[in-house]
Computed example of a mutant assay.
Amino acid sequence: MGRLLTNALYWLGLVLFHLRLDGLVRWLGRGNVKVLLYHDVEAHETDYTAGLDCTTRTEAFAAHLDWLRQHYTVVSLETFLAGEAPRRAAVITFDDGYHSVYRNAWPALRERGMPATVYLISGVVDNVAMVWVNELNYWLRAEPGFTRSVVEKDVGVPAGLSVPDVISHCRMNYDPQRIFAALGRIRVKFPDAHQAAVALSQLYVSWDDVREMQQAGMTFGNHTITHPNLERLSDDEQFAEFAGAQDAIGRKIGLVTSLAYPFGHHSGSSADIAARAGLTSIGEVGGANRRLNPMAIGRTHIGDETVAGLFARVEVVEPIKARLRALGG
């Protein structure tokens, strides 16, 4: 669905909220379980996350939780998948495994007795590496001249794009060999800066963090090894991403059975490949859940929204877009 339609529906949601018609809209959508997708919960964006629309300010997240507690029953992903979610239910998920989930989101959830699921990128837990999106974002801001020359020459990014548009171009035209080769050249050029960036960022959770949250009731899922655009990978490459992350996560915290597609992108064969890797449910980006389909869970991406914006996303934008797709399909 186009950005123009999304923006129009978002503004419609804001108007309905401020006209105090949100209760009626929630009642009409009471059978659609709202599955929320967060990423980073932090006081502000950093050079690793700026412009990626993945950071929810800590105070905004707390306001979201209070509003959800007032109007929905927040249940675990497992309760939803078992078909046991009541009407007016919500599920909270996080992608990527940012350390801010451990530092900021988990305490807020625990204080309110709310469950959640975190999808881990196995290759960056313990901060042994950085997701290519975060690293490229950092270099484009820290060393823009050299970084732009490398990605324009080695990755084929057009000149003159904004930083978010460079990231978007690399995502949509994802070529892991070219992207990781370009990042390798940048690291060689600035070795001290690279080591400092990884050491100082502490961007992702550690396995100790994961185990502590797991013991307190948080659940976890598979978000691949390297966070690729699956549409751009072969079937064998996709299986390697799914199965490799399954093995890495399983050795640390036990078997997980749910996958979240990186960026929400996937090919026509991705669900079958995931099933072969032992995964029994998949979180998408976008969509709704009027009927339970474990291999296509509709999730609403939430950024730094006001409560009115949160309402607009979960009760207006995604449900209407899902209905329009169903009518068109």
Rank of each mutant, 00 (worst) to 15 (best):
F180V: 06
A196L: 12
Y174A: 10
Y174R: 01
P144C: 14
L136P: 03
H39F: 09
V256A: 07
L14C: 15
V166K: 14
A199K: 12
D192N: 14
P86Y: 05
R211A: 07
G113R: 07
M130H: 06
R187N: 05
A248Q: 14
I273Q: 10
P115K: 00
H64S: 00
L233R: 13
A116H: 00
V128F: 07
G309L: 04
H44Q: 15
V210R: 01
T73W: 06
W132R: 07
G156S: 03
E45G: 11
P158Y: 01
R323L: 08
A60V: 09
T55C: 13
L109K: 09
D272M: 08
F80P: 02
Q215R: 02
V316W: 06
M218L: 06
I273G: 08
R57C: 07
S267G: 13
A43G: 11
V151R: 12
V166I: 15
D209R: 10
N229V: 05
A274N: 00
N293W: 13
T93H: 09
S281E: 03
S201V: 08
L324G: 02
G160A: 11
V166Q: 15
G303P: 01
A248E: 15
I186P: 02
E231F: 04
L16A: 15
E59H: 09
S162V: 03
S201M: 01
G156L: 02
Y98K: 02
A193H: 07
N127H: 06
T56A: 12
V150R: 05
T300I: 07
E284V: 12
R251K: 15
T46Y: 07
F220C: 04
L183D: 09
V131P: 01
G156T: 02
E78L: 01
N289Q: 13
G254S: 11
L279C: 11
V314P: 03
A326S: 09
F80Y: 14
S201L: 04
G13A: 14
E135K: 13
E241Q: 11
T117N: 06
A142S: 10
S281F: 00
V157R: 13
I282K: 06
W139S: 14
A63N: 00
V25I: 07
T306Y: 07
S281D: 00
Q177D: 04
A142L: 09
A50I: 03
G244K: 05
M295C: 13
M172Q: 11
T56S: 15
V198M: 06
T56K: 12
T6F: 14
A260L: 00
R290P: 03
A216K: 04
R69E: 00
L140H: 13
G156Y: 02
E78D: 07
G264Q: 03
G278I: 05
A50F: 01
S149C: 03
G264P: 09
L292I: 14
R291T: 15
R325T: 10
H71G: 12
H99S: 06
A182D: 10
T280Y: 11
V314N: 09
A62S: 08
R290H: 12
